[in-house]
Computed example of a mutant assay.
Amino acid sequence: MRKIIILFVLAIVTTVSAQAQMQTPRFGIRAGANYSGFSGDNADNLDRMFGFHAGITSQFMLSSDDFFAIQPELLFSTKGAESKDDNTKWKISYIDVPVLARINAGPLYFEGGPQASFRVGGDIEVGGNNIVDDLDMFKRTSFGYAAGVGLASTPLGLSLGVRYNGDFTKLYEEDNVSDARNSVFMLTLGYTFSGR
C-alpha cells in the first residue's frame, strides 16, 4: 500500500513541477457509461451492472509536438455489482482522481496511470428496496490504476475511448469479510476546450 501511495504522490508532483515548463494546459469535460463489478475470490457469484461517470479533465503537454501529456482528472463515478438474480444490488459512488500519462499517436491515444478513489455515497438494495444507507463497511479511500485507448479529433476537441480501472485496495474495511475489489470498464466521451 505504501508503494502505491508513493507512486500516486510522485505522479502528482511530476505534473505540478512540469507545469511551469510546458504549454498552456488544456481543460475539458468527460462523461460516459460504466460497466462495473467486483473482482476477487469472493466475487464469482456476482454480475456486473451499468452506471455512469462525469467530470473534468486537464492535459499538460510535455512535448512541443503534443505527443506526450500528463492528464489529471476529477470524475464522479458510480460503481457496484448485483447478484445473479438481480435481487441484491451494491451501488457505491466515488470521486475518482486518475493521473494518467497519455500518448497521442495521430488520432489514436493511449493512457495509463495511478488512480485514487474516495467513497462519497451509495446504498445496498434488496428487491428494489434500500436496506443499507450507511456504507462504513466499505473503505472510504482506495488506490488503483486506469488504462485505456481511444480516438481523438484535435480540431474538434472530441475524443471517444474505452478505459479499464481496477483497485489494488480491498473494498471492505474488515479484511476477513471479503477480498472483493472494484473493477470497472468505461466507455467515455470527452471534449477538450482549445488551449491556444
Rank of each mutant, 00 (worst) to 15 (best):
M1G: 14
I4R: 05
L7I: 12
L7F: 14
I12H: 01
T15N: 08
V16L: 13
A20E: 10
Q21W: 13
P25I: 03
I29F: 10
R30E: 13
D41C: 08
D41V: 05
D44K: 15
R48W: 04
F50G: 15
F52G: 05
A54G: 15
G55Q: 03
S58Y: 00
S58G: 14
S58R: 00
Q59N: 06
S63E: 11
F67C: 07
I70Q: 00
Q71L: 04
L74Y: 03
F76W: 15
S77G: 09
E82T: 13
S83V: 10
D86I: 13
N87H: 07
T88N: 12
W90A: 08
S93L: 03
D96L: 02
A101I: 11
A101V: 11
R102V: 05
P107K: 12
E111L: 14
G112M: 08
G112I: 13
P114H: 07
P114L: 09
Q115S: 11
Q115N: 11
D123I: 03
V126D: 02
G127D: 14
N129W: 02
N129V: 15
N130R: 15
I131W: 05
V132T: 12
V132S: 08
V132F: 02
D134T: 13
M137W: 00
R140K: 15
T141K: 14
T141N: 11
F143P: 01
A146T: 07
T154E: 04
L156Y: 05
L156Q: 05
S159P: 10
G161R: 01
Y164M: 08
N165H: 14
G166Q: 06
F168S: 03
F168K: 09
F168W: 06
T169S: 15
T169G: 09
L171V: 07
E173V: 11
E173S: 14
D175G: 13
V177I: 15
S178N: 10
S183T: 01
V184Y: 01
T188G: 09
G190I: 02
T192F: 06
T192C: 01
F193I: 08
S194D: 11
S194C: 08
R196H: 11
R196Y: 06
